[in-house]
Amino acid sequence: MSSYQVRPATLRDAKAVAEIHASASRAAYQGLVPDEHLGTVPPEKRLAYWREAIEYSEPQVHVALDGDQIVGFVGFDRSRDAKSKPTTGEIWAIYALSSHWDKGVGLALWDAAREGLLEEGCTQVTVWVPLRNERALRFHELAGFKRELNTAQTVTMGSVKLEEIRLKRALS
């Protein structure tokens, strides 16, 4: 049982979500992309994105709390992949403060996303992960996701190209 409370995000949480997204993605991508490409999204643009996501539930956003402090978040919804079935969900983003890595925050967030996707009628879930992000790959594989080897794609982060792969699992 997780010691973290997870609840749907409110508009008041948008700033904390944006800040966690910025700091955790910097930590997660350290060594994968050059430092000058880390944190290139202006804070006001990141905040606007998460405010809109929370307001319109696209994606649905849940936050993990350690006491009163937000320490992580997950964004999930239907899959954005063009050829996916309507019963396929997707983890759009899942991040925790690096100080809370390996402490159960990710698992608590994954459990909340799984429950939310099941309530939406989804039977499968996918997530896109950079191939070189071993921590994220390990997390998702421990949560039962399997790599779909024929899905590798190249994405651009600043002027850097990253190879991503889709992972998938059943929700039940």
Rank of each mutant, 00 (worst) to 15 (best):
Y4M: 07
L11H: 10
R12M: 09
R12L: 11
A14H: 01
V17L: 05
A18V: 06
A18S: 15
H21M: 09
H21A: 10
A22P: 05
A24M: 04
A27R: 01
Y29C: 01
Y29M: 00
V33W: 02
P34G: 09
H37T: 00
L38R: 00
T40A: 05
T40C: 04
V41P: 03
K45V: 15
R46Q: 05
A48T: 08
A48F: 06
W50P: 03
R51D: 05
R51W: 07
R51G: 06
A53H: 03
A53S: 15
I54L: 06
Y56M: 11
S57M: 06
A64C: 08
V71H: 03
V74L: 12
F76E: 02
F76D: 00
F76W: 07
R78E: 00
S79M: 11
R80T: 14
S84D: 14
S84V: 07
G89Y: 00
I91K: 02
I91L: 09
Y95T: 04
G104C: 06
V105N: 01
G106K: 03
W110N: 03
D111P: 06
E115W: 04
G116D: 01
L117W: 02
L117Y: 00
L118D: 05
L118V: 13
E119S: 13
E119H: 12
E120R: 12
T123C: 07
Q124H: 13
V125N: 00
T126Y: 01
T126A: 00
V127T: 05
V127A: 03
V127M: 02
R135F: 03
L137R: 13
R138H: 11
H140P: 02
H140T: 03
A143I: 04
G144Q: 01
K146T: 13
L149W: 09
A152K: 15
A152E: 15
A152I: 05
Q153A: 11
V155D: 15
M157G: 00
S159P: 10
S159N: 14
K161W: 06
K161Q: 15
L162Y: 04
R166A: 10
A170C: 04
